[in-house]
Each structure stands twice: as structure tokens, then as C-alpha cells.
């Protein structure tokens, strides 16, 4: 550039000085003095470290807040899923059916064409004309040996249809109430006869005929007349 300045510093001299060389020049020694320390202490060190600690603590707190927020978001999503599931179940009628199953209210479902597997009319396989076919459609009656004789005289077909229902014999709520069929003035529910815990002592009443569906129970060993075949 301009190498003919009175001070005699060429561009190359300047680059040498800026690179830390050329200390034999007074300006070089002066530039070297810039690398010295201003003092033994470092002003602002305590403040900088305090700011660093505060930032580090802030980062920890921010991370803690982020974790809590993530948990809350996950919980809200889970709650939403459960809520939607409940709404869907209520809309489909499943909740009403389940509640009815739990509290044992089945009368509302009897005879309903939409009930699962329940036919309101008696099936020919359970009629006395076809005694040997009934056990094939009612698993509970497959080992009683009556071959459908217990259904004689029933006629309405309601109990037959209920015993053919696949889901009701497995209801635990009926077996938990063994005293209900023994009520003298109350007609036991036909499906209760399908429960394996049904005791035969209730049907030994001399003036009461056993219900047709009760004869379908595998634990039932009584004849329709209350006498044991043994």
C-alpha cells in the first residue's frame, strides 16, 4: 500500500507487528505491553460466577417445570382417552348393559329382540318332542340326564330361551345370591338355575315344582318331583 510513509512502517511491517513479531520496534514493544495484566485481581469475577450459578439453578428449575408439564400433559391425554371411551361406551349402550349385569336387573332385557343370543320363542330343540337335542344348545344341561324333561309343562319358552343365552350362565352375581330361588313367593330367575352353585335343597319343597331351567344345572340331581334318581 503506502510504504513510503515518513515513519518507515511498510504494510509488511504492520503485518509483522500485528502478528506479534517486530518487537525490536518501539511500537512493537508497546503492542507487547498490551498483553500484560491490568492487575492481579479480576474485577467482576464474583458477579460473573453469581450470574452463572443463577443461570444454572434457573436451568434446573426450568427442567423441573418441563418435567411436571410433561406429566400433566400425559395425564390429561390419558384422561381424555378414558373420557372418550366412556362416552363411546355410553353411546353404544354397553354401559347400560354392564350396569344391568352388575346389579342383576335382567328383566328389562327379557324378550328383547336386540338382546344378545336371546330368542323369545322356545326353540324346537328344547321341547319335549326333541328331548335329546337340548343339551347340545345349552351347555349347562348337557350332563343332567333329564334330556329336557324338566321343561315339560313350561310352555312359555322364556326360561328355555334364557338358558340358551351364552353370557348369562357365567354371571357371578347370580351365584352370589343362592337364597333368592328359595323364596316361597318369588319366582326365581330362570338364568339362576344355570349357575353351578345352585343348591338342590331349595327344590325339595314338596309343594313346589322345580323350575324348568333349574333342571338344566349340572349340579342339579333332583327329579321334577323332588326325588333323587339315586
Amino acid at each position: 500500500m503506502n510504504d513510503d510513509r515518513p515513519n518507515g512502517l511498510s504494510d509488511s511491517d504492520c503485518e509483522e507487528l500485528l502478528a506479534g513479531r517486530g518487537l525490536d520496534l518501539p511500537v512493537g514493544a508497546m503492542l507487547n505491553a498490551l498483553h500484560g495484566r491490568l492487575g492481579d485481581e479480576l474485577p467482576g469475577e464474583a458477579a460473573a460466577m453469581a450470574a452463572f450459578r443463577a443461570a444454572a439453578l434457573g436451568g434446573v428449575a426450568a427442567g423441573r417445570r418441563a418435567r411436571v408439564s410433561a406429566r400433566l400433559a400425559a395425564a390429561s391425554i390419558g384422561g381424555s382417552v378414558v373420557l372418550l371411551g366412556g362416552v363411546a361406551a355410553a353411546a353404544s349402550g354397553q354401559v347400560r348393559h354392564d350396569i344391568g349385569s352388575v346389579i342383576g336387573v335382567h328383566q328389562h332385557h327379557h324378550g328383547s329382540p336386540t338382546d344378545t343370543g336371546v330368542t323369545p320363542t322356545p326353540t324346537p330343540t328344547l321341547t319335549p318332542a326333541a328331548p335329546g337335542v337340548a343339551p347340545a344348545t345349552t351347555p349347562a344341561g348337557s350332563s343332567n340326564g333329564h334330556n329336557g324333561k324338566a321343561h315339560q309343562g313350561h310352555g312359555n319358552g322364556v326360561g328355555i330361551g334364557e338358558t340358551a343365552q351364552p353370557s348369562h350362565p357365567a354371571q357371578p352375581s347370580h351365584s352370589a345370591r343362592p337364597s333368592h330361588p328359595a323364596h316361597p313367593t318369588k319366582k326365581p330367575h330362570p338364568t339362576q338355575a344355570a349357575t353351578p352353585t345352585h343348591t338342590p335343597t331349595h327344590h325339595a319343597h314338596p309343594t313346589k315344582r322345580p323350575r324348568p331351567t333349574q333342571a338344566a344345572s349340572p349340579a342339579h340331581t333332583r327329579t321334577p318331583g323332588g326325588h333323587s334318581p339315586l
Partner: peptide, 23 residues
């Protein structure tokens, strides 16, 4: 360019005529 101008000015302040003498 700025750096070179500044160094030359510093050299002038320190005494350009003594620069060749040494430090």
C-alpha cells in the same frame, strides 16, 4: 487498512525517528 494506519500513527507518536534506533 485501519490497522496499518493506526500502527503508523502509533509509530509517529512514539517517535518515528527513534524507531530505527531500537527499544
Amino acid at each position: 487498512v485501519l490497522a496499518h494506519r493506526g500502527l503508523r500513527r502509533l509509530a509517529e507518536q512514539l517517535g518515528a525517528d527513534q524507531a530505527n534506533v531500537g527499544v
